[in-house]
Design a protein around this nucleic acid. Structure first.
Length: 435
DNA sequence: TCTGGGGTCCTGGTACTG
DNA sequence: TCTGCAGTACCAGGACCC
């Protein structure tokens, strides 16, 4: 899903495109969550549909009919409803999205094993090794689009180019339901007509910095001395953007990438200042995060706490443990210690989050038993909980502090129905982007 | 207008160590 | 014992992406 939409330039060339050397495909499903949700609701096709929750949530996806009213993804739901009151709002169904995504990925693997998923709804394919077997890149790209449409009932747009970043730009410009090939010889001309904001890695702040330098198009950027860009944006970003502006992108398609961090955060239905409720939320988040770390076969060493206050200022605090862990209790203890160390005097808090970083495979992390460690401790208790959850469903076994009394309120989260089942891990590796 | 939740990467500051 | 230095690890925050 592209965050920003750009006005497509004229198609490159007439007739069959020259796809020589363009062996990278970027496949991006069109309005994926909305399209997937409409498979069972054909009567809503052609009418505006928004995928999202209630309360203080934001739009997960909107179909093109809703976008015509100005609704975009990541927009607050309250605003989206104001812009398009006639839209049908459908709550997200993450299990369904994961199933469709899996099927689409298997279509990609029928073409090549060089598939790098970026999120549920997009992936890079390196088809250099498939051209001899399946035909030229354009033919393969069209086959992928047709297969997804036939088998899943949703449309996808595909960009075909010699580098990942140009392929990604091309798929964005091809949307919706399109195919755009950028021949190797035309990459620079293709790029230089675009606004600087089109470049991958140029967000709002960087665009502002570039505008201050008087740089509006990629051509402006390309003809600016790299040292000037380095001073304005930092060494790495400056040099990187200069390279991209000339179509230089050495990043390869990497089929498998391991997570570097796993975490959860939760926005309260209403801002809260009760430390007891916040501690409970930290326990819930630590429990959820640790379970995901364990299910990925990983352990982590750095626990990061995130706190967002009522005025939306956000702080993070982290602590590196003596040795890596996947134990819920240890993660909670670290997160709680970080929170208590803030010494907040009933500050109004909007969101708290817990993240585990410095992840390594469990078998690679040597566990050093402590003298005071019981033979069967929290580690074994967590394993037992995981087995129960696998058998009876997530949340079947919970810390006693998280069990709500019958008829009792479950903190501020319940105010907006914030409680959710454990979502399946949807990350599948990336090279700088993520869902 | 009023800002989710999942992530990655980079930068600058500080602490530690040899 | 003190100081300066360089390399490294850690920490916090910002920007960005989907």
């Amino acid at each position: 899903m592209s965050r920003r939409q750009f006005r497509p330039p004229p198609r490159v060339g007439d007739g069959p495109p020259d796809d020589t050397g363009a062996t990278i495909l970027h496949v991006d499903m069109d309005a994926f969550y909305a399209s997937a949700s409409l498979i069972d609701r054909p009567e809503l096709r052609g009418t505006p549909v928004i995928i999202g929750g209630g309360g203080r949530s934001v739009v997960l996806s909107a179909n093109y009919e809703a976008r015509a009213f100005g609704v975009t993804s990541a927009m607050p739901m309250t605003r989206a409803r104001r812009l398009c009151p006639q839209a049908t709002v459908i709550p997200p169904d993450h299990d369904r999205y994961a199933r469709i995504s899996e099927a689409v990925m298997s279509t990609f693997h029928a073409v090549t094993d060089q598939v790098e998923p970026l999120s549920l709804d997009e992936a890079f394919l390196d088809i250099a090794g498939a051209v001899r077997r399946l035909g030229p890149p354009t033919t393969i790209a069209q086959w992928v689009r047709d297969t997804i449409a036939d088998e899943q009932g949703i449309t996808a747009s595909v960009g075909v180019a010699s580098t990942k970043f140009v392929a990604k730009l091309a798929s964005g410009l091809a949307k919706p339901d399109g195919l755009l090939v950028v021949p190797q010889a035309e990459v620079v001309a293709f790029l230089h007509q675009l606004p600087v904001g089109a470049l991958w890695g140029v967000g709002e702040r960087t665009e502002e910095a570039l505008q201050r330098l008087g740089l509006r198009t990629v051509a402006d950027l390309a003809h600016t001395p790299v040292d000037t860009l380095r001073r304005a944006l930092g060494d790495v970003a400056g040099a990187h953007l200069h390279d991209l502006a000339w179509g230089r992108d050495e990043r390869r398609v990497v089929p498998v990438q391991r997570e570097k961090s796993i975490g959860s955060d939760e926005t309260f239905g209403a801002d809260i200042d009760d430390p007891v409720l916040i501690h409970r939320e930290l326990l819930r988040l630590a429990d959820r995060t640790a379970a995901r770390v364990r299910s990925a076969g990983l352990v982590g060493r750095t626990v990061t706490l995130k706190v967002r206050f009522a005025d939306f200022t956000t702080i993070t605090r982290s602590r590196t443990l003596r040795e890596p862990t996947d134990v819920s209790r240890e993660m909670y203890a670290a997160a709680r210690a970080l929170f208590d160390a803030l010494g907040l005097q009933r500050a109004r808090i909007r969101l708290v989050g817990v993240r585990m970083e410095g992840l390594v495979p469990r078998e690679r992390a040597a566990h050093q038993p402590r003298l005071d460690e019981p033979d069967h401790g929290w580690r074994e208790a967590d394993r037992a909980v995981d087995r129960a959850s696998a058998r009876f469903g997530a949340g079947a076994v919970r810390p006693a502090a998280l069990v709500t009394e019958p008829g009792g309120a479950d903190g501020a989260r319940e105010a907006t129905g914030g409680a959710r089942g454990a979502r399946p891990p949807i990350r599948m590796g990336r090279s700088g982007s993520q869902t």
